[in-house]
């Protein structure tokens, strides 16, 4: 390592620059986790000392505890519905031979392409219209939120499951069928195990997309039926403090854990690119 060599400095500047880009992206998450342990109640640096008490305090704040439970429930139900419907659709799109498949796959990926603001306000006026037409409340109810969030989970599922199905040839399925397996048996014993990785990844991505969604949710929540991101947004309009940082830190750890668990089953770096 010769410090008078231009290559040394070039490598140093290059690595430092690339490292800085990744660091800036990760910095806010590190900062918020750090803040959640500060002893003082106001977000000021440096810390007086460290404590766990803001985590307890956050759970004692009804809006955060309820928002957390609502978000978990919502994301779980939306994921189950969306991944089931999306997986079935992906199988049909990849293995089926019928006209209009390209258009249909475009339709199913559509919710990813439409900006959240447009879709969020559109869903709101749509639900209000139905509310008025049939005198049955959808806005600010769990079914309304689930219907909106399923929309987020379908494109991810179709994309990830299709990718995993394209990776295996259909000849294995044909072999099973030739050996006398019925269509359902072929699906259960051959197709499903082969696309398991894609389904697991789809479930994870769907869950997180739903759990963290703000734009589609914002207009559809109501009193007592709010989600964690919306509660956080309302709180942050006034201040940021260690209690809110604790709520954020819990999400960061939860998402990190979910990703690491999934990565053991499916290599996420292969799923995404």
């Amino acid at each position: 390592m010769n410090i008078w060599d231009a290559t040394f400095w070039r490598t140093l500047v290059w690595r430092g620059g690339v490292g800085a880009v990744f660091a800036v992206v990760l910095l806010p998450m590190v900062a918020v986790v750090w803040l959640s342990f500060f002893n003082q109640e106001i977000a000021s640096f440096p810390p007086d000392g460290y404590t766990w008490r803001w985590y307890v305090n956050a759970w004692d704040q009804k809006q955060f505890a309820r928002g957390f439970i609502n978000s978990l429930q919502l994301a779980a139900i939306a994921t189950v519905i969306g991944v089931t419907a999306g997986t079935a659709a992906a199988v049909a799109l990849v293995r089926g031979r019928f006209p209009g498949r390209t258009a249909l796959s475009g339709l199913l990926l559509g919710p990813l392409a439409v900006p959240g603001v447009v879709l969020g306000t559109g869903l709101y006026v749509f639900f209000v219209q139905i509310d008025n037409a049939i005198d049955f409340q959808i806005v600010a109810t769990l079914p309304g939120l689930i219907a909106a969030h399923v929309l987020l989970t379908i494109p991810w599922t179709v994309r990830l499951v299709s990718a995993s199905l394209l990776g295996v040839t259909a000849s294995v399925e044909e072999a099973a069928a030739n050996l006398g397996a019925r269509p359902f048996t072929v699906f259960r014993r051959v197709t499903l195990p082969m696309m398991r990785a894609g389904v697991v990844a789809a479930a994870l991505f769907s869950f997180i997309q739903s759990f963290e969604n703000l734009e589609l949710t914002l207009l559809l929540v109501g009193p007592g039926r709010s989600t964690l991101p919306v509660e956080m947004l309302n709180y942050l309009n006034f201040r940021v403090d260690p209690t809110l940082a604790a709520v954020a830190a819990v999400q960061i750890v939860l998402i990190g854990a979910l990703m690491l668990i999934t990565d053991r089953f499916v290599s996420l770096s292969k799923v995404v690119s």
Binding site: P28, I255, M259, L260
Partner: peptide
């Protein structure tokens, strides 16, 4: 590194904005 790049995408914008608020405020880092 790929995991570290996907990770922030999964964490919602509200959480990340909260992080910048702690960094950039008048009494921030």
């Amino acid at each position: 590194l790929t995991l570290l790049t996907i990770f922030p995408l999964m964490v919602g914008n509200v959480v990340r904005a909260a992080g910048w608020m702690t960094l950039l405020g008048n009494t921030g880092m």
